[in-house]
């Protein structure tokens, strides 16, 4: 009989890192304090070669979170069945401890736009997102986590606050949430609300994983601060503080350091993981 159970039941409530191939040996030789890794699903959908071989080795040692960046859950059109089948194949093979995707869209018709694009929060988009999450959870046979976006603009047609929208998605689909506190900080700055207020209003009971990452600073046409999610630098102090603020309520959770561009050498990324471990220490 095929063993479909995860190799590791859940992600540990400790620091994890987004896996980059240049850190393969470092992770096997001196991982501490990193206790789990996250991979982008789409990078492991080739037929063979080094990516799959590396992931096979790492999965024996670490709980793995599979993080999709291409499913377009917020897309107006139907989910890409071929892509869903590829995800199913990856999840069946890898048996990850977690699967997560984004509250965003990236596919339009036959085009994949390679960015996490925003959607308005309305009754219509709520229905659409819930139907897509049902389809994902039914196809993969697992509960998924949904990540909050980083927002640069607002939709005049939105009738829901993001936190209420997410809470309703959780209530209707039974999915969990991936809370990206860097995204919260970015959106709150860009759209002019309090990041702590967002956390206070957020359905924290559903949080199965937390992300932190770096961002860039810019300004809009009026000179207002415009933060841009870049995952290309260290996490800034206010985001670490927002993490601590969140953990004080949730208690320990798996915390991932995302660093996808201008990826640093292992000691730098490991130092970020240490900061995540320090943030987790007081709430253990």
């Amino acid at each position: 009989m095929l063993d479909n159970s995860p190799r590791f039941e859940r992600l540990p409530d400790g620091p994890g890192v987004g896996y980059k191939p240049q850190h393969f040996n470092d992770l096997l030789n001196e991982p501490a304090p990193v206790s789990w890794i996250e991979v982008h699903a789409e990078n492991y959908m080739g037929s063979g070669g080094r990516p799959l071989a590396q992931l096979r080795s790492l999965a024996e040692r670490f709980p793995v979170s599979v993080h999709g960046v291409g499913l377009s859950i917020g897309g107006e059109g139907p989910l890409d069945k071929d892509h869903l089948a590829r995800l199913r194949k990856l999840v069946d093979w890898l048996r990850p401890a977690s699967f997560s995707e984004h509250l965003a869209w990236s596919t339009h018709g036959a085009e994949f736009l390679n960015d996490l694009l925003p959607l308005p929060y309305t009754n219509d988009t709520l229905k659409l997102v819930c139907a897509h999450i049902d389809e994902v959870q039914n196809t993969l046979g697992t509960r998924m986590l949904l990540e909050n976006p980083s927002s640069y603009l607002a939709f005049s047609e939105s009738t829901w606050d993001e936190t209420d929208f997410l809470a309703e998605v959780v209530r209707r689909t039974g999915c969990g949430l991936l809370l990206d506190v860097n995204n919260v900080f970015i959106s709150a700055t860009n759209l002019g609300y309090s990041p702590e207020g967002y956390i206070d209003a957020y359905p924290l009971d559903a949080v199965g994983e937390i992300h932190v990452g770096g961002h860039d600073e810019d300004t809009d046409d009026n000179g207002a601060a415009l933060l841009i999610d870049s995952h290309g630098k260290p996490v800034v102090d206010p985001v670490w503080q927002l993490l601590c603020y969140t953990l004080a309520v949730t208690g320990p959770r798996p915390v991932l350091v995302e660093w996808d561009n201008d990826v640093p050498d292992w000691p730098v990324l490991r130092a970020e993981a240490r900061r995540a471990a320090e943030a987790l220490q007081p709430v253990r």
Partner: peptide
């Protein structure tokens, strides 16, 4: 598109360019 705004209900302007830039740069 007009329905995209800054937090003061003004036009999104450069804020939309973030997405434009992300797509072209990442591709």
């Amino acid at each position: 598109p007009e329905g995209l705004q800054n937090p003061h209900a003004g036009p999104a302007g450069a804020r939309f360019s973030v997405y434009r830039n992300n797509v072209v740069v990442s591709l």
